[in-house]
């Protein structure tokens, strides 16, 4: 085993792992306020990437990213208001099928707008070939951007949920929706807010990762499956655990290239998903008994 390659794979794993963690956090935000798994979560990531690429033709990069995030947040709000807000006590199965339907519609719309081609934003700084070298390990500056922005996002979210009024209202809804209502919290608005936040975070992830992974109209589903794997691995609803789980999955996947062809990389992570679902659905860091009481 070559030690330089080892670090190279490790860095790649951490990069992907961070993105998976961000997608997982998106799942968790919506799950916590609504008890729904939003199967269209990956589409937010795709939309963020695609919209920012489209806008970058006209405006500078930071403006394109900001606008893409805001637009995707608006799309998230529209989706919630159109398809979810007015349903009274929808069953889990019904919500699953509706969000799957939404993901198809978003994907097909993207296909019609942008075609089937692969797109990417330019590297935020430097180019594909530039690298920051530490000894014999070369790290692309974009990797630092991905990790940095993800870290800022997670910290920001923690502050939002811990310190701000809307954040605390959302947490109140998550722990007991009826009690939160009695305290005068508009639970429906909190659900919309959770979709907006989750869409924004997904879109941001799509923007920062697109220079490395490229993005196309159907990039959403694989990302959603991996994000979900990470969310389960960490324990559904637990965002900090999702970060750890994301790094674990990313690194595992990255090192799997050693023993299997790259084309099977996704197979590894989905096999992990199935394994976790079968063996320990409460997740690595979750409480088994608490999970037993939840409605999945």
């Amino acid at each position: 085993m070559n030690i330089d390659f080892f670090f190279q794979y490790l860095v790649a794993g951490i990069t992907y792992g961070t993105i998976y963690a961000i997608v997982a956090i998106g799942f968790n935000i919506i799950y916590n306020t609504t008890g729904i798994i939003n199967f269209a979560q990956g589409e937010f990531v795709m939309l963020g990437g695609m919209i920012s690429v489209a806008l970058h033709a006209f405006v500078p990069l930071p403006a394109a990213i900001l606008a893409a995030v805001i637009l995707t947040m608006m799309i998230g709000a529209i989706i919630e208001i159109l398809f979810i807000r007015w349903l009274a006590n929808p069953s889990v199965l019904r919500m699953i099928i509706i969000t799957i339907g939404i993901s198809i519609l978003v994907r097909e719309t993207a296909l019609h707008i942008w075609g089937a081609g692969v797109r990417a934003l330019p590297y935020f700084t430097g180019s594909e070939v530039s690298a920051i070298s530490v000894g014999d390990v070369h790290v692309s500056p974009q990797v630092l951007w991905v990790i940095g922005i993800s870290a800022v996002t997670v910290t920001g979210l923690n502050l939002f949920f811990g310190r701000t009024l809307p954040g605390r209202q959302m947490r109140a809804c998550a722990s007991n929706r009826n009690a939160a209502r009695l305290c005068g919290i508009n639970a429906k608005n909190m659900v919309t807010l959770s979709f907006v936040l989750s869409a924004g975070i997904g879109a941001l992830a799509g923007c920062v990762v697109s220079p490395i992974t490229y993005i196309q109209y159907d990039s959403g589903t694989p990302l959603a499956i991996k994000g979900f794997t990470v969310a389960i691995l960490g324990g559904l609803g637990n965002s900090m655990a999702a970060v750890a789980a994301g790094l674990i999955l990313g690194v595992l996947e990255s090192f799997s290239i050693w023993i299997m062809p790259t084309a099977y990389k996704d197979v590894i992570s989905i096999s992990i998903l199935l394994l976790i679902l079968f063996v320990r659905p409460s997740g690595l860091f979750g409480n088994k008994e608490a999970a037993g009481l939840k409605e999945f």
Binding site: I37, F39, V92, L93, I96, I100, I225, F228, I232, L273, L274, L277, F278, P281, E295, F296
Partner: peptide, 11 residues
């Protein structure tokens, strides 16, 4: 088939 809801769908 031991799974239910979201977990079954995802699996």
């Amino acid at each position: 088939l031991k799974l239910k809801g979201h977990y079954l769908a995802m699996a």
